[in-house]
């Protein structure tokens, strides 16, 4: 068996999505979305506001219930799971990074507490170990350990976002959902966050689904790209291929509309 055949044959998709559809009354949120996500893969979803990318993400992450379709995580039907089982999955195997760190952090709790809380939610009880692990993760996201007892409200936007990432990754999830994680940050802070995310994906073998409208971000971060318009996926493929040789009229418009720097 060749290297290529091994790559294709041995691993199974971590997430398998088939025909996912969500309507809001007569309006389409997302329609007939299908894709596989494999371990270690970063999938970017792009499209303008209202294209359905955030609806899709929240359906995948179990925050909204789709009207039709199937989502299988490691072969397990996520939509057929009970609430308890799905919550457990979202605490252990999954993580969700919000665009606004305030939605993903507890602003009244210290930085260390924010990270430690996730550990306690999966059963950690030893205070010293929890604090040690929290300190380790603050270091990994480049937050000085002497800020461990400060509240996130005393942090800059970029630090808050890095803290949110530490809080999400401390429990070593395998699948991370990200909704515009670099939106609203200064360009220089964005660059640092991108580098951090790339390193974490590589070193921890994370699978990531990242929703963004920033084509430069997906070019640097995503292996594969899905383009959405009016709730439908109009094109998907290898990220640089979709950006450099777009096939669909909408993708061509999207790519040609970006200002060159």
């Amino acid at each position: 068996m060749t290297v290529m055949e091994r790559v294709v044959a041995t691993d199974q998709p971590l997430l398998k999505v088939e025909g996912l559809t969500k309507r809001y009354g007569a309006r389409i949120g997302c329609a007939d979305v299908s894709f596989d996500l494999f371990p270690g893969e970063v999938l970017g979803i792009v499209g303008e506001s209202g294209s359905g990318k955030s609806t899709l993400l929240s359906c995948l992450a179990g925050q909204q219930r789709p009207d039709l379709g199937r989502v299988a995580y490691e072969g397990r039907d996520v939509l057929a799971m009970g609430e308890t089982e799905r919550r457990r999955l979202s605490r252990t195997d999954w993580a969700y990074v919000h665009q606004n760190p305030r939605d993903g952090l507890r602003m009244g709790v210290s930085a260390g507490g924010n990270v430690g809380e996730r550990l306690m939610a999966v059963g950690a009880r030893h205070y010293g170990q929890i604090r040690g692990k929290a300190a380790d993760w603050l270091g990994r996201v480049e937050i000085a350990v002497d800020r461990i007892d400060d509240r996130p409200s005393a942090f800059s936007g970029g630090m808050q976002q890095r803290l949110q990432i530490a809080r999400n990754l401390v429990t070593q999830p395998r699948l991370v959902f990200m909704d515009e994680p670099t939106g609203g940050l200064d360009v220089s802070v964005q660059a640092r966050l991108l580098d951090l995310l790339r390193g974490l994906v590589r070193d921890l073998g994370l699978s990531v689904i990242i929703v963004t409208h920033d084509l430069a971000v997906v070019r640097l971060l995503a292996h594969r790209l899905m383009v959405m318009k009016s709730g439908y996926v109009v094109e998907q493929g290898l990220t640089d291929q979709v950006l450099d040789d777009p096939q669909h009229a909408y993708t061509q418009l999207l790519v040609s509309s970006v200002l060159q720097v």
Partner: peptide, 25 residues
Amino acid sequence: LPREIIALRRHTLGYVSQFLRVVPR
């Protein structure tokens, strides 16, 4: 498939283009 090309690029196929495209900083 895209993932087959990703694996090919990682192990087998290198490309020196005229332009350097990297994460800033």
